[in-house]
Design a protein around this nucleic acid. Structure first.
Length: 751
DNA sequence: CTAGGGTTAG
């Protein structure tokens, strides 16, 4: 009676073990465990309990496995090996070593578990140590098996040690695992990871009786080495593809930038009824994110819900990432908070998502929440939260993260250092940025670009160009972002010819295809120096039409120079592309207002109202004693409002004494000039500066942040204020950075 | 009659 029952249980348990478990595996194991205890005579046969031990281990229940092991009245070598493997798999290396030491006897399998544990935990040196012990274990008659060799090959692969890898390959050939039955895949994998795809292919070709795993490994290697065509061919000739084969193709195609093809493969996979698991979902969601394919992404999200994968930590993180890449940050948030648990990856996905969707404050807040949750950031997380601070131009918070980087030991990571260089550059602390850069032991493309852009934003054109040339001479390749820094520096300094030659060299010498931002820089380059006709010709010769920012750049230059003809052309195009952008109306209004054409202004205002376009209200803010003080124009809500206006009053009279003349062309209302002057004097920026003058200690610069561009009058006034008060005033506006000192601005009056 | 290999997320 109990014999067939026994076999039945064993069969169930081994199916749990080979199906690589998961949550349901653990449930099945638990259920069978109960059945064994209830229906079989006590004690149950050891081999059955060993089976159970393995099933628990495979489904991630190492504590259960441990408990069962401790409760077992009889244990054999298999029992020990099963637990040893479980501990190795769970990376409980201390327990693993202790168990190994306590074993009454050991065989090759015991050593293999030990070696695989070390190799998997990225401790190849310890794996090699275990291998040497195995070779010395002569009295027990234990010899390395082919599995030992394959584990060692994986250790060599993890070490990236080509010599060691070749050595093991030779040993394998010598001891006669010649047909590579089990060692073949790891060898192929190792060579591919080392970039020696030729060797990998040779090993693969020599394999006899290739199974799915071998094919899968080869396809992975080919895709890793960007040999997409060969991978495709191999995939198509396979007759017995499994779920991993398909997933490998989806992943590899995505990683090679062929996301649409990945989606096709995914569709074929579903059509053929291939099992889809967390790996597949993770990859296909990455593909959707890269394509910004929100609809496809949503469909796949629905599919994850139907298959109960939506709460899986891998799939959940991938969903958060997909939604934020599709610019649906609310959906990303919803998924994130619905997950029953969150790890460092999910938190980082959320933080990066906030940052990339312009929600920098939320990114910083989420970072603190993560820390409160007891999760320590890694280099990736810290780098991205610092980038968010950079976008906020939040020097205080950024500096706190600088401290965190120092105490947490994450400073040496290049992502962290690069983010800090960017932060200091964007916050106008270009000296700090440069010092940090000098302290870095190694600079990559991003580090150089961060510093180049920092100087460019600071308006230091000559330094920007010198630095860029130095970067080239060091053999560091610039990318599109680097050139945006260089071109914008040229444009701000009025280096038209230089900028033009960099633009052509970028395409010819560096093979970089210009994108909208580069074209905008070029339009800016011409129009800023008043060469509006050339800007017009440039636009007409462009292979693409300018985007809204490009047209806006031209339009604002036309406004400055009073060129109605080209200005009209720019405005028409701008309104066509972006009829809901308040900036286009504001610019057009200000052009007409400057000429006193109030009828046109009124018409434009009507147009705005009809289309329900609202001008983004300008505001400026200043941080003082960890509190942000926000001001809007004419704002009287601040508790110190009275003092602020008194201070402004005083400043105004001083400024006038020094020769300040209000620039009324910035006012878009048809009112008397005296009223315009009054309106100007209460711009949000001036309120924030007055507050800063009252509270920020004398020897500290006053740091203002502004959501729009600085207006002409405020820019002029701030120069006067810096001279009168002898204070340094740093203003970060929507586009760039201004440092006012002793009556001059770092931007050289170009912005 | 039990143990070992290949793929995933920021």
């Amino acid at each position: 009676m109990s014999r067939p029952l026994c076999n039945h249980y064993a069969a169930i348990l081994s199916s749990v073990a080979t199906a690589a478990g998961g949550r349901s595996g653990a449930h099945v194991a638990g259920a069978v465990h109960c059945l064994i205890l209830r229906t079989l005579p006590h004690p149950p046969p050891v081999h059955l309990l060993n089976h159970l031990l393995t099933a628990y281990g495979k489904s991630g229940r190492h504590a259960r496995a441990r408990g069962l092991f401790d409760a077992m009245p009889h244990r054999n070598l298999y029992t020990y090996n099963a637990l040893l493997t479980t501990l190795a798999h769970a990376r409980l290396l201390g327990d693993m070593e202790a168990l190994f030491a306590s074993m009454p006897e050991r065989d090759a399998v015991s050593y293999n578990a030990l070696i695989a544990g070390f190799a998997g935990a990225n401790l190849p040196a310890r794996a090699a140590g275990a291998y040497r012990t195995l070779l010395r274990e002569e009295d027990a008659g234990v010899r390395p098996s082919r599995i030992t060799m394959s584990s060692m090959v994986m250790a060599a692969s993890a070490l990236g040690d080509r010599a060691l890898g070749r050595q093991f390959h030779c040993q394998i050939l010598r001891v006669g695992f010649g047909a590579y039955a089990f060692v073949g895949s790891p060898l192929v994998d190792m060579y591919a990871k080392m970039g020696l795809i030729g060797y990998a292919k040779r090993v693969f070709d020599e394999l006899e009786g290739k199974n799915v795993v071998m094919y899968n490994t080869m396809i992975t290697g080919l895709l890793r080495c960007k040999m997409v065509q060969e991978a495709r061919q191999l995939f198509e000739v396979m007759t017995d593809r499994d779920s991993i084969t398909w997933t490998t193709m989806v992943t590899g195609l995505t990683q090679n930038g062929l996301e649409s093809e990945a989606l096709d493969v995914f569709r074929r996979m579903r059509a053929q009824g291939v099992a889809i698991d967390q790996y597949t979902f993770g990859s296909i969601l990455t593909a959707c994110g890269a394509l910004s394919a929100l609809e496809q992404g949503k469909q796949i999200h629905a599919y994850t819900i139907r298959t109960c994968y939506d709460d899986n930590i891998f799939v959940g993180s991938a969903l958060v990432d997909m939604y934020s890449k599709c610019r649906s940050i609310i959906l990303a948030e919803t998924v994130f908070w619905r997950m029953s648990s969150r790890n460092i990856i999910s938190w980082t996905a959320m933080i990066v998502g906030y940052g990339q969707n312009g929600c920098s404050e939320e990114a910083v807040r989420a970072f603190s929440e993560m820390q409160r949750d007891g999760i320590e950031p890694d280099d990736y997380t810290l780098g991205s939260v610092i980038s968010s601070c950079a976008n906020l131009a939040s020097l205080e918070e950024g500096a706190q993260f600088h401290c965190l980087a120092l105490v947490s030991g994450l400073m040496p990571y290049i992502t962290v250092s690069n983010a800090l260089v960017t932060l200091y550059g964007k916050c106008g602390s270009i000296e700090d940025a440069h010092r940090l850069f000098d302290e870095m032991p190694f600079h990559d493309q991003v580090s150089w670009t961060a510093l180049v852009s920092g100087y460019a934003q600071f308006g230091k054109a000559k330094e920007t160009i010198d630095l860029f040339e130095k970067m080239l001479s060091k053999g560091v390749k610039p990318d599109g972002v680097t050139f945006i820094g260089v071109l914008s520096a040229c444009s701000r300094a009025g280096f038209v010819e230089k900028g033009r030659s960099y633009f052509y060299s970028m395409q010819k010498d560096h093979g970089i295809v210009p994108v909208d931002d580069h074209y905008t820089c070029m339009i800016d380059l011409y129009s800023r120096s008043g060469r509006l006709k050339e800007a017009e010709e440039f636009i007409k010769k462009m292979p693409v039409r300018p985007d809204a920012i490009g047209w806006g750049t031209l339009l604002s230059a036309c406004r400055l120079r009073g060129d109605m003809e080209i200005g009209k052309w720019a405005a028409e195009n701008l309104l066509e592309i972006d009829p809901h952008n308040p900036a286009s109306y504001v610019l057009l209004c200000s052009m007409h207002a400057a000429k006193g054409q109030w009828n046109e202004v009124a018409q434009l205002r009507r147009g705005m109202r009809d289309r329900q376009v609202k001008k983004e209200p300008g505001c400026s803010w200043i941080k003082y004693k960890n509190k942000v003080h926000i001001f809007s124009a004419d704002d009287q809500s601040h508790p110190f409002s009275k003092g602020i206006y008194e201070k402004l009053e005083w400043l105004n009279s001083k400024m006038v004494e020094e020769g300040y003349k209000p620039d009324v062309s910035s006012v878009l209302h048809d009112v008397a000039d005296a009223d315009k002057v009054h309106m100007l004097s209460h711009h949000s920026e001036k309120l924030a500066i007055a507050f800063g003058l009252m509270f920020v200690p004398q020897d500290m610069p006053i740091r203002i942040v502004k959501n729009l561009r600085v207006c002409v009058d405020c820019h002029n006034a701030t120069k006067f204020i810096s001279k009168i008060t002898g204070r340094d005033i740093l203003v970060r506006d929507a586009v760039r950075f201004h440092k006012f000192s002793n009556g001059l601005c770092s931007c050289g009056d170009f912005w």
